[in-house]
Write a protein that binds this DNA or RNA. Structure first.
Length: 270
DNA sequence: AACGAATCCTGTGCGC
DNA sequence: TGCGCACAGGATTCGT
């Protein structure tokens, strides 16, 4: 669920609660997320003041003077900020207790998320090979065009490859390709520079609109205050197979690409 | 090198 | 209503 807009929504919701706060304790209940949580993490974070909360790709970086905690939400991870936390449920894997009594609680049924550590001046291997941020100047259609020359892979797969551009997952890849009028199954290497320029604009616009709506809630995702994201109502193609295209009225189709469901309008996308 | 597929987990929703 | 199966928003790793 959590693609760039959901992670950014989480970050924005947490910012006023976390930055400047001192950490009282990190309580770990399970270590076996996607990768094991480093055992020394509670020691590294205790009594430290949170300097900033940044986002790189779909990772959140919670930074103190000792280094940064790297948080990824995987498929089903949710961060909530709680004034009066109840008893933790079976999927509440860790709590970050703050000086003021509030608690940042991480919940993740599938445990595809992670909590890792990055020392100052170092770049974690998971962050090393990431492509440009889609909302930055570095992300352009020309870059996508250059990188895709000779590639036979479907453009949707190409767009979801985090070494080409970060933050775009299954939902926003489908949505952006619809907005750009490009068939998701088309070979990435057979799309013109002009059309990639259109796609880059579509990606940026789609992500920005989704952030404004607080992300997309299909099942699990919630904002830190418990609210769902409202972009679901704005989806053009994702999860709309059989329904009328909002642009031309043709029925939206679904097909498998790279073992993942893709949604598109057969009339508007070529 | 590039691509396809398996993999890590649990929950849900569907068809029978 | 109960059961089994397919599938789910991510992304690394492995085999061809």
């Amino acid at each position: 669920m959590p693609e760039l807009p959901e992670v950014e929504t989480t970050r924005l919701g947490l910012l006023p609660h976390l930055v400047g706060q001192q950490i009282q304790a990190l309580i770990l209940r399970r270590y076996d997320l996607r990768w094991p949580i480093p055992r020394q993490l509670p020691e590294l974070l205790a009594q430290q003041r949170i300097k900033c909360l940044d986002r790189r790709a779909k990772y959140l970086l919670l930074t103190t003077s000792h280094g940064s905690a790297l948080i990824h939400l995987g498929m089903t991870g949710v961060l909530r900020i709680l004034a009066a936390p109840g008893e933790p449920g079976p999927h509440d894997h860790w709590d970050l207790r703050l000086e003021n009594g509030w608690v940042l609680r991480y919940s993740d049924p599938r445990r595809f998320g992670c909590l890792l550590w990055q020392a100052p001046g170092q770049i974690h291997p998971l962050l090393a090979r990431l492509g440009p941020e889609p909302l930055s100047e570095a992300f352009t259609g020309e870059l996508l065009w250059q990188r895709s020359r000779g590639r036979k892979v479907a453009v949707k797969i190409f767009l979801m490859d985090q070494s080409n551009v970060v933050g775009v997952g299954n939902i926003y890849a489908s949505e952006s390709l619809f907005a750009a009028g490009i068939d998701p199954a088309r070979a990435a290497g057979r799309i013109s520079c002009i059309r990639y320029a259109r796609l880059a604009v579509a990606v940026r616009d789609t992500l920005r609109r989704a952030i404004r709506r607080g992300g997309t809630t299909l099942h699990d995702f919630h904002q830190p205050d418990g609210q769902p994201g409202y972009f679901y109502q704005d989806l053009s193609v994702y999860d709309r197979q059989g329904q009328a295209c909002r642009h031309c009225g043709a029925p939206i189709r679904q097909r498998q690409l790279g073992q993942r469901a893709s949604y598109y309008c057969p009339h508007c996308q070529h």
